[in-house]
Design a protein around this nucleic acid. Structure first.
Length: 158
DNA sequence: CCCTGATTCGC
DNA sequence: GCGAATCAGG
C-alpha cells in the first residue's frame, strides 16, 4: 500500500490547481481525502512550486541594506500601486493578472488598461477591502473632495 | 480578527 | 517524505 497519499494523480492535480492560483485550502478540499490545507502547502513547498513560480503572498525579503546616515528618500512618496492606465508596458505585470471572466471571489478587480481593449486584465490579488486588494482599495475607495455631503447630493439624498 | 502562504518541527 | 504546528504578511 502506498503509505503516501501523494500519488501521481494527486500531485498532478496539486500542480494544476496551484498553478491555477487556487488557494491551499481549496486544493485540499478538492482532493478531499485526508489532505488538509497544511498537507497541500507542505507538498507544494517540497515540490518547489512556491518558489520560482508565482505566489499569492510573495514574501520579498528586503536585504536591509544600510543606507547612508544622511538620505532623503522620497518626499513625494507615491503609493507602490500601479496606475490603472497611462503607463503602457511599464508597471503592468504581464503575468499573474486575471481576466474579467476568470476572476474569482477574493480577487482584486482593479482594472489594467481599458475594458474595451483585448489586453484588459484585472489585478487578481486577494481582495482586502470590497472588490480590491488593500493597495488598490486605498485608491478606489478614496472619498471625493467635498466630503460625504457631495456623495449625498450625487445620490439625490441632499 | 479574518484570511492567506511559508517555514519549522516532530514523526 | 509526510503532515501538523507555528510563523509571518496582508
Amino acid at each position: 500500500m502506498t503509505a503516501s497519499p501523494w500519488t501521481d494523480d494527486r500531485i498532478d492535480r496539486l500542480k494544476t490547481l496551484w498553478r491555477e492560483g487556487r488557494t491551499a485550502e481549496a486544493i485540499s478540499l478538492d482532493l478531499g481525502s485526508g489532505i488538509s490545507r497544511n498537507a497541500v502547502l507542505g507538498k507544494v513547498h517540497r515540490l518547489g512550486l512556491s518558489a520560482g513560480g508565482h505566489g499569492a503572498t510573495p514574501v520579498i525579503k528586503t536585504p536591509v541594506s544600510k543606507r547612508s546616515t544622511r538620505s532623503a528618500p522620497k518626499p513625494t512618496a507615491e503609493p507602490p500601486c500601479p496606475a490603472p492606465v497611462e503607463h503602457p508596458g511599464f508597471d503592468v505585470p504581464a503575468e499573474g493578472l486575471t481576466t474579467i471572466l476568470s476572476v474569482r471571489r477574493l480577487e482584486c478587480r482593479w482594472p489594467y488598461g481599458e475594458p474595451e481593449d483585448h489586453d484588459f486584465r484585472l489585478c487578481g490579488r486577494r481582495v482586502e477591502r470590497g472588490a480590491f486588494c488593500g493597495a488598490h482599495a486605498g485608491i478606489g475607495y478614496r472619498p471625493p473632495p467635498g466630503g460625504p455631503q457631495a456623495l449625498m447630493a450625487l445620490a439625490g439624498l441632499a
